[in-house]
Computed example of a mutant assay.
Amino acid sequence: MLDQTPVQIAWVTRDLATTEAVLTSLTGAKKWVRMPGVHFGPDTCSYRGEPADFVADISLSYAGDTQLELIAPVSGPSIYTEYLDRCGPGLHHLCMEAADTDRLDAALRDAERAGAPVVMAGTMPGGMRFAYVSAQASGVPFIEFAYVPPEIRAFFDYVKQEQK
């Protein structure tokens, strides 16, 4: 497993604006950058072992060095709709970042051995790979592991700079 502090805290919500306002008040996040209509398609994403096809609105900000992510499902089944249906809006996952794709693959193998199999995985435009693992019976709904390539890192740095 990766030995580090989580780099992101994420919530699932039905209302980005309301959740942004509350988290701004509670965390001091100053500006949110929205990415509406992000499509996770079957060529690049899987959900519970099958090709995925869903859309979500995503909003990013920072509290200090920690990225805050809000996810509002728009259409199609995913771990986000699954969580909303089961638990309602709320804290969804933490993200751990891998330095490269080999370390990401190793972290996923370690998670599997620890009883937390991959439940959703994919590659975003720009080459960011992500995978969510879950050990629901142990009280760990989702942990995300991600490899963030330089192009995506530059975008995240932009979002972080917007907080100053």
Rank of each mutant, 00 (worst) to 15 (best):
L104F: 07
K30D: 12
Y47P: 07
D15W: 02
A137P: 07
K164V: 10
F54E: 00
V38P: 02
G126A: 10
Q136Y: 15
V74L: 07
Q67F: 09
P51V: 04
P73Y: 00
T27H: 05
P51A: 08
K31T: 11
S134H: 06
D15S: 01
S61H: 00
A106P: 05
S46V: 10
M124V: 08
G64C: 08
D3H: 14
P6R: 07
I79C: 06
M120C: 11
P117K: 12
L84H: 03
Y80F: 06
Q67Y: 06
K164N: 13
L108F: 09
K30S: 09
T19Q: 09
Q8C: 13
C95M: 11
Q67R: 14
P117Q: 13
L16M: 02
E97C: 10
L108T: 09
I79G: 01
F130W: 03
V12P: 03
R86H: 03
E112K: 15
A116K: 08
L70E: 01
Q136D: 15
P73L: 02
D65G: 12
I71G: 01
V140Q: 06
P36R: 04
G115A: 06
S59K: 04
G37F: 11
G127R: 11
T24K: 07
G41E: 14
G139D: 07
G127K: 14
M96W: 10
T44V: 12
F156C: 09
I79F: 04
E69S: 01
A135H: 08
F156I: 09
T66C: 11
Q67W: 08
A137D: 11
R48V: 07
T19R: 11
A56W: 02
K30R: 14
S138P: 14
P6F: 01
D85L: 13
A154H: 06
K31E: 12
R103W: 08
R153D: 12
P89V: 03
S138F: 15
V22H: 04
K164F: 09
Y147L: 09
G122C: 06
P77L: 03
P6I: 00
H93T: 02
Y147E: 08
I9L: 13
F142M: 05
A72L: 00
G90Y: 02
I79W: 02
S75T: 03
Y132C: 02
A146C: 08
H92Y: 07
V22E: 07
G90T: 00
L2M: 12
D102E: 15
T19P: 14
W11V: 00
A63D: 10
E144I: 00
C45T: 14
L26D: 04
M120A: 12
E162Q: 15
A63W: 04
